[in-house]
């Protein structure tokens, strides 16, 4: 920021933005790619494993389910948030991030009881995923019905 330019209420936001320390984009992106890739590769491993007994679609669903369960356990042991501290989107976007978003509020609000704590707060972060996902799937299916006749 030019030292001679006056900081006013109007340009304050721009001034703060210039002054802000920037996240190291490259580092964040590297870790997101690496961790995200590893989680998906592990998922692929489970798909290959389950394919020995099931058809590909069921194997794929079971593999995702296994990842969800593992991530839930890691959340319980207090490990998943440590991964999230540096992996960012790499640990948020895979289905394991969804699991973490379901389990962490459940754990946090247990002290408020099993009904209003665990039960009500479980979907605090992940609720929007289910709500939006179901809504859009119904809309798209209806559209396909109309178009596909």
């Amino acid at each position: 920021m030019d030292v001679n330019r006056e900081i006013t209420r109007e340009n304050y936001k721009a001034y703060v933005f210039e002054k802000m320390p920037k996240s190291s984009h490259w580092k964040n992106m590297f870790w997101a790619f690496l961790i995200g890739g590893i989680i998906c590769a592990i998922g692929q491993g489970f798909i290959e494993l389950y394919s020995l007994w099931f058809n590909l679609q069921d194997a794929s669903i079971l593999a995702s389910g296994t990842l969800v369960f593992i991530a839930a356990m890691l959340t319980g042991f207090g490990v998943y948030d440590c991964i999230g501290r540096f992996a960012g989107a790499g640990s948020t976007i895979p289905i394991t991030g969804f699991s973490n978003a379901v389990v962490s509020p459940a754990l946090e609000f247990r002290v408020e009881g099993y009904v209003y704590g665990v039960g009500a707060k479980m979907f605090l972060v992940a609720g929007p995923v289910i709500v939006n996902g179901v809504t859009i799937s119904v809309i798209i299916a209806l559209i396909s019905l109309i178009i596909g006749g």
Partner: peptide, 17 residues
Amino acid sequence: ERQYRYPLELGVLRSPV
């Protein structure tokens, strides 16, 4: 943390500010 931000165990990247 619970009141103003996220549950403790949620894995999020913290902003440098």
